[in-house]
């Protein structure tokens, strides 16, 4: 397995270079270094000297991919003395440097991942439990009115934008019934009141797709021979579901679950924005709006790394839950 992991880590390097290259291309297609300088300087009148000084200080005075000025020092120098290489190399040792506004990105990420987790983790755990429980309940009453009604409701929940749930939740639970703060954030035990509503909304918004998917997984299992055998042995339907169907249905669920685990750090873009949660989701959105390339590239890179880790964990988890699977 160690060889497999090492190979996957090595595979990740060209993927990350590619992701970084794409980020560079896409970002600089829309924003030139002069645009970034103007945006960061933010003054009404910006002189060319100010722009030049800013670019020199931040390293944006270098060409993106090829530096013709260093041609005499060789092709390698021309390729390495560029913005792309300068900005990318540091990322691979997780040195994110400073944002274009001058803040330490690593410090910001360390601070902001906790609020993201404070929302994402309970949403994930409660959401998963709720979805599996509801799916099992529906499977228990499969073919009944409950099954049909729940599926219609699930499709309806899926069809409505998540933004609606946020606004409706804020209006209903905060504005009209005065149960929770409309938005805000506190860390620690005092912050529970801020977490409940976004978590509830997150869980509710995910019920539609989650329940439908898990239901279909469990239904696949319910007609298998081993289930029939379990029933024939006289087990109750609940014991059949929890003792046999659930463990066997967990393997495909794991595929979807483990892969998103590392991404929980990255937060939710809309949820954090509407609930005033100072997490990494809003960090990314703010950086895009502020044309802060240093943060954007760091967050894209981090997202890619976490996704790769997620995929790797999924593969490893297969071997843990299904002894037939061997990584080689």
């Amino acid at each position: 397995m160690l060889n497999y992991i090492i190979r996957r880590v090595l595979y990740a390097i060209p993927i990350l270079i590619g992701v970084n290259l794409l980020t560079f291309l896409l970002f600089f297609m829309v924003n030139s270094p002069d645009d970034i300088a103007r945006s960061q300087l933010g003054a009404k009148q910006i002189s060319p000297q100010q722009i030049t000084a800013w670019k020199v200080k931040r390293g944006y005075d270098k060409p993106l991919f090829y530096n013709a000025e260093t041609k005499e020092e060789g092709v390698l120098a021309s390729l390495t003395d560029t913005l792309f290489v300068k900005e990318s190399l540091a990322l691979f040792i997780f040195d994110f440097g400073f944002s274009d506004a001058g803040r330490n990105i690593a410090t910001d990420i360390k601070q902001r991942m906790w609020p993201s987790l404070q929302i994402a983790l309970p949403s994930f755990i409660i959401g998963l439990t709720t979805n599996i429980s509801l799916a099992l309940l529906i499977v228990l009453f499969r073919g009944s009115v409950l099954d049909t009604t729940t599926m219609i409701i699930a499709v309806m929940i899926m069809s409505i934008s998540g933004l609606f749930y946020i606004i409706a939740g804020q209006v209903l639970f905060s504005k009209l019934w005065h149960w929770f703060p409309i938005s805000g954030f506190e860390s620690g035990i005092g912050g529970i009141k801020f977490v409940i509503l976004p978590v509830l909304i997150g869980v509710f918004g995910g019920i539609g797709s989650g329940v439908r998917w898990y239901r279909s997984l469990f239904l696949e299992q319910i007609n298998q021979d081993y289930v029939r055998t379990a029933r024939a042995k006289g087990l109750t339907e609940l014991r059949v579901l929890f003792g046999h169907v659930l463990p066997n249905g967990m393997l495909p669920i794991l595929t979807g679950v483990v892969v998103v685990l590392p991404s929980l750090f990255m937060g939710s873009l809309i949820m954090e924005s509407f609930f005033g949660i100072p997490g990494l989701g809003s960090y990314t959105i703010d950086a895009i709006n502020a044309q802060d390339f240093s943060i954007v590239k760091s967050m894209v890179f981090l997202g890619a790394v976490l996704y790769i880790i997620g995929l790797l964990l999924t593969d490893i988890s297969y071997t843990l839950f299904d002894p037939r699977v061997k990584l080689s």
């Binding site: 606004i167 804020q170 209006v171 905060s174 504005k175 005065h178 409309i182 938005s183 805000g184 924005s273 509407f274 609930f275 005033g276 100072p278 809003s282």
Partner: peptide
């Protein structure tokens, strides 16, 4: 406090 969206800001003012 950071309030990016106008609706929560407005409702908090009314409250």
């Amino acid at each position: 406090s950071l309030e990016k969206e106008s609706i929560p800001l407005w409702n908090k003012f009314l409250q």
